[in-house]
Design a binder for these strands. Structure first.
Lengths: 215, 215
DNA sequence: CAAAATAGGGACAGGGTTGTCCCTATTTTT
DNA sequence: AAAAATAGGGACAACCCTGTCCCTATTTTG
């Protein structure tokens, strides 16, 4: 009962896929700077945590083992149980197989965020949280995006990787310089620094022998 | 055709869930130190990449949009098409809804790794790769593990987070000192350093007001 | 009680990443 | 031909994380 530290947001992520759970936790920590995030790999653990802690935000993947993932009733049961145990928190549902109907059902139960796993990109949770704050809910149904191919080289630093990713999406007709400026704004650094990172990344790729066409 | 750099392992990850794809890419880069990893968010991109590049390892999630994830035929079709385009690579299938039958079908097609998403933990791919190298295949079907609850605080460094995670699983009857020694071996650092990290993590948690019980 | 374990610190070097600033050729655009 | 963009570098400080070593109280265990 003494688990309330006003400074921090207390978050619980219930998701059985380990890598996905860690990724969600990571995203949430980035979106909520002063946060304490708990992870639960199954419903049993989740229930334990819900009984001993007070949470501000609970993220649920209803497709957990022990419940038939194809059974609509089972899925909603999980959500219902968790909502009952954390009436003061706001709740997001994250799922690999989203449907419009399920969102409507969840909404009736009190869920304010419904997110298809293939529509959660890095950084997207900031927008979702803001949308919830402004409109009261946020829905992101499955969406086949035309994302460009990605390229990761073990020798690049995260910054280089990131800058390179953006540069590779440069539309024709836009100069690199303009991209540098956009990146500068976006990451709050000098355009010259962005340029530097891009050049260093390029140099590394050249040295190892391969660079994606059109860089 | 000139895409062969003998030093690097060329990997392709085909997965529509962005966070999962990134996580898999991250895992693969950690497991294969000198690697170049490409990511494809849908089959179209994957086919493009397969035509223009030569890969050593291809990781496929057959549950992609555009194909009915519940249709066994559709799922296997995706796998089949990709195998045809990369006959020299080894292939892993990663899925959120694994079945024994599907593994058998995949195996007949030439797949050597079949992994349920909820059975891939951080670092697990090293073992999978080794098992494939030794036995020719590796299967990890869905498995409800009794993982302990996780705890993440934004103020902790990765090392502190990691050490704390291990310490929290300390069985009763084992002294902290013994854990420090185990951690020292596992991470190839001094037991004293592990102790230091734990203590610092503990101090940080105390300062912010909360620490999980039993730490 | 004596010994071991634990809590709670400080100092310090090394390494990598980040970010800024500056430089010169070469190529492309206007 | 002049101007802008681009390639390809170097130097440098600031910062954080890592890892090692050392220190003193307090608590727990044998």
């Amino acid at each position: 009962m003494s688990e309330q530290t006003s400074k921090h947001t207390h978050v619980l992520v219930i998701e059985d896929q380990h890598l996905m759970r860690l990724a969600l936790i990571h995203e949430l920590q980035a979106a909520l700077p002063a946060s304490i995030v708990h992870g639960a790999a199954n419903v049993t653990i989740a229930l334990d945590l819900l009984e001993s802690h007070q949470f501000d935000l609970v993220v649920i993947d209803p497709g957990m083992p022990g419940y038939d993932p194809k059974s609509q009733d089972d899925r909603l049961d999980v959500v219902q149980v968790i909502l009952d145990l954390s009436p003061d928190a706001i709740h997001f549902v994250v799922t690999g197989s989203d449907t419009d109907e399920e969102w409507e059902h969840c909404q009736k139960l009190g869920v304010v965020g419904y997110l298809a796993k293939n529509n959660i990109r890095p950084g997207a949770l900031v927008d979702v949280l803001q949308e919830v704050a402004e409109r009261g809910y946020s829905v992101r149904l499955s969406n086949e995006t035309t994302a460009p191919p990605e390229f990761y080289h073990s020798g690049l630093t995260p910054r280089e990787q990131e800058i390179l990713g953006w540069m590779r999406q440069r539309p024709s007709g836009i100069s690199r310089k303009e991209i540098y400026e956009q990146l500068g704004e976006r990451f709050d650094i000098d355009a010259a620094s962005a340029e530097k990172y891009y050049k260093r990344a390029r140099a590394k790729l050249l040295k190892t022998g391969l660079l994606p066409k059109g860089l």
